[in-house]
């Protein structure tokens, strides 16, 4: 093995297929998107090179800032609900005092395997302004809080983000659960001997040792929020008006409704840049030395 590891040609040959695949499938489309963002192009006719005009226009477009803001809100909801509640549930199902833990573990993961269309249709019924379960629930409790959940310009994005958070929380739950399970039991035993309660033990041992898992979960949640598309496409069509647009939706609108592929590519380029910046920041924040005991 060591002989192969010293052989640079062998290393190059072994990584070549993966590198080639990555280049073709990931790197090439990103470069093409950037290249095409410098054209005025309807997707079919001959493209006209306009250099950075699409970006200049993008930075003056109110829809761009609204879409970016919605993406950030969406990401924030995902972080709070998926990672926050995910952590809470993980700590709950790893506690031996909780009954039916296996059943709960499976239950939390079930929404992940549902089709996104099914999940959205389900929640469309829940959010229905006239007959929806949520309004009926408030009505049953005698609370006067009837809302037009998806028809609200300010509230619709939160309503949609909750659907995504609900569906994929199980995924983050699984990642965090695996990380908690990998913490040696003797750390907790030592904490108990030292007189630490459950909360103290989790704060001092569990959470610090989950940093690597959190890093991964944050990257997934934030980039997932920034480029959200399917939920709003199915549930509101980006509406009312443009109230639930994200950059991905803006890209779709530019390319397929307005026939401005170049402008759509500029939106996509900004989305890639945003996701890249978010990933770098997350890595910086979580990049300190791993906690060891």
């Amino acid at each position: 093995m060591e002989k192969y590891l010293r052989d640079r040609t062998a290393i190059a040959v072994f990584i070549l297929p993966t590198l080639l695949l990555f280049t073709i499938v990931v790197f090439n489309p990103i470069l093409q998107t950037f290249y095409r963002s410098m054209f005025e192009w309807d997707g079919l006719s001959e493209a006209q090179f306009i250099f950075f005009d699409n970006f200049t226009r993008l930075f003056q477009d109110r829809l761009f800032y609204d879409s970016m803001y919605n993406g950030l809100l969406f990401a924030a909801v995902l972080v709070v609900l998926q990672i926050g509640i995910g952590t809470f549930l993980v700590l709950a199902v790893t506690d031996s005092a909780i009954k039916y833990r296996k059943f709960l573990r499976i239950s939390y993961f079930i929404p992940v395997v549902l089709s996104i269309t099914v999940a959205c249709q389900l929640w469309l019924s829940v959010y229905n302004g006239e007959y929806g379960l949520l309004n009926k629930f408030f009505e049953t409790l005698g609370i006067s809080y009837r809302q037009d959940w998806l028809n609200s310009e300010k509230g619709a994005i939160f309503a949609i983000a909750v659907v995504n958070a609900w569906q994929y929380m199980g995924y983050h739950f699984a990642i965090l659960l695996a990380a908690v399970k990998s913490i040696p039991e003797q750390y907790f035993e030592a904490a108990r001997i030292d007189g630490a309660g459950k909360v103290r033990a989790h704060l001092s041992i569990t959470l610090p040792l989950l940093v690597e898992a959190y890093r991964f979960c944050f990257v997934l949640a934030i980039t997932g929020g920034l480029n959200a598309f399917a939920n709003m496409f199915i549930m509101t069509g980006g509406g009312p008006g443009t109230a639930t647009y994200t950059l991905t939706y803006m890209m779709y609108r530019s390319a397929f409704r307005v026939n401005e592929f170049g402008y759509g590519c500029a939106s996509a380029t900004m989305l890639v840049v945003q996701c890249l910046i978010a990933t770098i920041i997350i890595n910086k924040l979580f990049g300190r030395e791993s906690v060891t005991y």
């Binding site: 028809n151 609200s152 310009e153 300010k154 980006g238 509406g239 009312p240 008006g241 443009t242 109230a243």
Partner: peptide, 11 residues
């Protein structure tokens, strides 16, 4: 987009 937003009453 604009006419759909009108139907929210908040535009």
């Amino acid at each position: 987009d604009a006419t759909q937003r009108l139907l929210t009453g908040s535009y």
